[in-house]
Design a protein around this nucleic acid. Structure first.
Lengths: 340, 340
DNA sequence: CAAAGGCACGAAATCGTTTTCGTGTTGAAA
DNA sequence: TTTCAACACGAAAACGATTTCGTGCCTTTG
C-alpha cells in the first residue's frame, strides 16, 4: 500500500522548500529550469495530485454541487441528474446526490449536511411535504449564507432564485388541444392534488384548452390523486362506466393505469378512448400501446440548471442581483395511445 | 447575506481563544461551566456548524463515499443508488455520484477526480468498455492508495476486494426451470455478449437448467446482442418464424422486445410463448402483459455494498485482510407473461 | 571597487478545526 | 508564609496546499 504523496514529502525528499515544489509544479517563472525539471519528474513518478480537500479549504470552494431530489427511482429525476452530471463534469465539478424521500425533515437535514462546506451550491426539486407545509426556511438560510440555489420542476414563487421549469400550463394545453383536434368531446383529467405545483398548473392548462375551444369544464371529469400508492385503484373507480373519449394524465403512471382501467371496461385504446400522458419515460415508449406524451426533456433541464448554477458560482457576487427562470419547452410525442 | 460563522469569529467576539471555543462546544471538562454556557449560547444563536472541509482535512476522512455507475437512466442502478444513499445517510455519510457512460476513459477520470481526497472509498459497477478492455489499473491504484472498494453487479475476478453480486447463474437457472415446469420445450435465450459478466453467467444458468432437465442446448436458439441501440431490430429478426414456446431474456428491454416480436409474428404471450425477463423494474410491472421476471433487489445490493464499505472505513486497517463477496439471492416474480 | 539589480529560492501566513502541551491564577495544606 | 494541586484557559502545531513577501547571492555597471 502506497498512500498519496504530498508536497511536504516531495520537498523533504528533494531537499527544497514546500513553496518551491508548489511553484515548480505550477510552472512559476520564479523557479530555475533545472529545479523545475527535477521536481516535475519526481512528482510525475510518484503520481502526485494535489489534495482536493486542502484546495477546497484554501480556495473556499469545493467544486462540487449538491442536488437534492424527492426520489431517484423516478425516471424524470434520473434524467435530470444525468444532465446535471454531464455539464458539471465538463466544467470540472462533482455532483453530490441526496434524496429527500419527499420528506421535509430529510430535505432540511440534507441541506444542512451539504451546506457546511460540502458544496458550493444547490440544485433541487422540493419534496412534496415541503410544498405542503410551505416551510422554506432552509432555502432562505442557504441563500442568506451566500449559496446559490437553482430550483427545478417543483418550484415555488416565494423563493427568489434561479429556476428551471417546463411550461406546464402550455404543455397540458397542447396535449388537450391535440385530443380535441383528433375529435375528442369528453376529456377526463387525472391529476395530483393542487399543492404539488405541477398538478395545479397542468390542471390550469387543461381547463384553458377546454375554454379556448368553447367546451365547458365538467368537474366530475377531474380526478385529483393524493396517494400515489392507491392511484391505480382510485383511477379504476373513477373511470368505471364513465362516458369519455379522451384522457389527459399528468404522469406516465396515471396514464397507464387509465389505459388498464379503460380496457377492463371493455373499451379500446385508442379506438374508443385516446390517452395522453406527461413525462416521456421508458414506460411510455415501451408500453403497448405506446403512449402519446408531453415530453419533459429532463436532461435539458438538468443541463440548464447546472449551467446557471455554475455561472453564478464563477462570477463575482456583484452582478448577483438578477435571477432567471428558464422555461424548457415541452414537446408532444405522438404514439399509439391516441387516434391519428 | 450572512456568511457562515467560524470558531475564530466566535473567539474574537467573546474575547476568548479559539481552543476554548472549540473545547466548550465539544463539552470538554477543561472549560468552566459559565464560559461554556456563554459560548454555547452564542454559537447556537449564530447557528454555528463546524466546517466539513476543515474537518475532512484534519481527520483525513471526508465522510463521503463515491459511487460510479455506467449509466443512471437504468432502473436497476437507480435502485442501487437509493440503497446506498439510505445506509450512507443513516451512518452520516454523503454520496458522490459519478457516471461513466460505459466509457473506460470517463471511469478512470472519475476515479481520479474522486480519489484525490474527495471520497473515502468507492462503490462501483464497471463500465462495459472497461470489462472489454480488461484494464483495471485504476482500481488497483485506488486499492493501493488505501481506498476501500466495493464492486457490485458487474464485477471481475481479477480484482480482490469486497463484492456484492446476485447469483446470476442460479437466477437464470430458476427462470428457465420455471419455463420448463410450465411445459416449455423449446426455450430461446436472449443475452448480451460474453464479456459482460452477467451475460455470460446468465447464459451459463440457462444451459445448466436445460442440461439438468436432459434438454439439449441448441445454439441456434441463443442470441447475443452487442449493440443496445439495435437490440429491438435484432430480436425481431432473430425470432422471426422461430418455432419456440419460451423465451428467457437477460433484461427487461430484451424481454419486451421479444414480446413485441412474438406478437407481430401472430402468436400470443403467454398462450403460445412464455417470456421471462431479468431485473424487476417499473417496466416489468406496468407492461401489458406484465412480465414474469427474476428480481434483482437493487436496493438490497446498494445497502449491502454501503454497509461493507463503511465497515471497512471505520475499522482499523489491521483486519483488512479478508474480503467478502455477498451474494444477494434473486427471486422469481410470476406475472402474466408466463402460463400458470 | 562598491552599489544596484535580478535571479532563485525560503519563511510564514492562510483556510477552519482539533488537540497537545503549556502557563497563570487560585485555593488549600503544611 | 510558602508550596503544590487543581482549575481554566491559551499558544501552537497539524492537516495540505497556495501565495506574498523577504533574503542571500551573483552579476553587472558606474
Amino acid at each position: 500500500m502506497r498512500p498519496k504523496i504530498t508536497l511536504k514529502q516531495i520537498a523533504k525528499e528533494l531537499d527544497v522548500s514546500i513553496s518551491t515544489v508548489s511553484k515548480a509544479l505550477r510552472d512559476s517563472p520564479e523557479i530555475g529550469e533545472d529545479t523545475k525539471e527535477k521536481i516535475k519528474a519526481f512528482a510525475k513518478f510518484y503520481n502526485y495530485k494535489p489534495n482536493n480537500i486542502a484546495l477546497s479549504l484554501k480556495n473556499r470552494k469545493t467544486k462540487t454541487i449538491g442536488i437534492i431530489i424527492p426520489e431517484i427511482v423516478h425516471h424524470f429525476f434520473t434524467t435530470v441528474i444525468s444532465g446535471v452530471e454531464k455539464v458539471a463534469n465538463e466544467l470540472g465539478y462533482n455532483v453530490l446526490v441526496c434524496l429527500s424521500d419527499n420528506s421535509f425533515d430529510k430535505e432540511v437535514l440534507n441541506m444542512e449536511m451539504l451546506a457546511n462546506g460540502s458544496t458550493d451550491g444547490f440544485i433541487m426539486s422540493l419534496a412534496k411535504e415541503t410544498m405542503q407545509k410551505g416551510d422554506y426556511h432552509h432555502l432562505v438560510e442557504a441563500i442568506n449564507q451566500g449559496m446559490p440555489l437553482v430550483l427545478f420542476d417543483r418550484v415555488i414563487d416565494e423563493i427568489t432564485c434561479d429556476k428551471v421549469i417546463i411550461d406546464d400550463v402550455n404543455g397540458a394545453k397542447k396535449a388537450v388541444q391535440h385530443l380535441i383536434d383528433i375529435g375528442c368531446k369528453k376529456i377526463a383529467l387525472i391529476s395530483t392534488v393542487d399543492y404539488v405545483s405541477v398538478g395545479k398548473l397542468r390542471t390550469k392548462g387543461y381547463k384553458t384548452a377546454l375554454k379556448d375551444n368553447f367546451f365547458n369544464v365538467d368537474e366530475s371529469l377531474i380526478l385529483k390523486i393524493e396517494e400515489m400508492d392507491e392511484s391505480e385503484a382510485e383511477i379504476e373507480r373513477f373511470l368505471k362506466d364513465k362516458d369519455i373519449d379522451g384522457v389527459f394524465a399528468v404522469n406516465e403512471h396515471f396514464a397507464i393505469s387509465a389505459i388498464k382501467a379503460i380496457q377492463e371496461n371493455g373499451k379500446k385504446v385508442p379506438d374508443d378512448v385516446s390517452v395522453i400522458g406527461f413525462t416521456d419515460g421508458e414506460l411510455s415508449k415501451r408500453f403497448i400501446p405506446s403512449l402519446t406524451t408531453v415530453s419533459q426533456h429532463g436532461t435539458r433541464m438538468g443541463e440548464e440548471a447546472a449551467r446557471m448554477l455554475i455561472e453564478k458560482l464563477e462570477n463575482t457576487p456583484a452582478e448577483d442581483e438578477k435571477y432567471k427562470t428558464i422555461i424548457v419547452e415541452t414537446g408532444l410525442v405522438t404514439r399509439n395511445s391516441t387516434k391519428s
